[in-house]
């Protein structure tokens, strides 16, 4: 059974939004809308692994997207590809049978449920990367209800990973 069947995807998004704020990135990250440009996610990924998500990579993410959903989607596609490549090339694992986030819905409609899936993939990078201890310890300091959702999200990802 899918462990997230009993968890609201929107609740997942809210909890992961709280988690994303622990990275203290430059760009505002208080609301779902703040994240739909992809800029925050790119900055978080660079903190997770600055050697892989280097300046060359992040410079391809446009920062001044305003309300232009086409630019947002373009950014989100690059980020999703970056996450999947990172899993394959650095973490040595593939994510199978996981419904990938619909970046069109995130960019055009600020869909919290799809954004939750995207943040879930970033969470997977954080708890598997070289510096994972730092990120896991930060999660363990968070409110219990958030920790619970984060745990369920990680468990779902782990059930879809294959070496």
């Amino acid at each position: 059974m899918n462990p997230l069947e009993s968890v609201d995807r929107v609740e997942l998004c809210e909890s992961l939004l709280t988690w994303i704020q622990t990275f203290g990135v430059e760009a505002p990250c208080k609301t779902v809308e703040d994240l739909t440009s992809g800029v925050v996610m790119a900055q978080v990924l660079q903190k997770i692994d600055p050697s892989y998500f280097d300046d060359n990579w992040i410079n391809r993410i446009k920062t001044e997207v305003g309300d232009n959903w086409r630019l947002k989607i373009s950014n989100l596609k690059k980020i999703l590809k970056g996450i999947l490549d990172y899993n394959h090339e650095v973490l040595g694992q593939q994510i199978n049978d996981f419904t990938l986030p619909d970046v069109n819905l995130i960019g055009e409609h600020s869909d919290a449920s799809e954004l939750g899936r995207m943040l879930q993939l970033i969470l997977g990078c954080a708890v598997n990367c070289e510096q994972k201890q730092e990120y896991i310890k930060t999660i363990m300091m968070m409110e219990e209800s958030v920790q619970h959702v984060v745990m369920t999200a990680i468990q779902e990802l782990m059930s879809k990973e294959t070496p």
């Binding site: 650095v90 973490l91 040595g92 598997n128 201890q133 896991i136 990680i154």
Partner: peptide
């Protein structure tokens, strides 16, 4: 108090999970 017991059990589950994650080897060779 059953509520307190439940909270403590939940805390234990979370701590076990994240501690096992901490000790899990990463995908890097070596």
């Amino acid at each position: 108090d059953p509520n307190m017991k439940g909270a403590a059990a939940n805390e234990g589950v979370l701590a076990n999970f994240f501690n096992s994650l901490l000790s899990k080897k990463t995908g890097t060779p070596g």
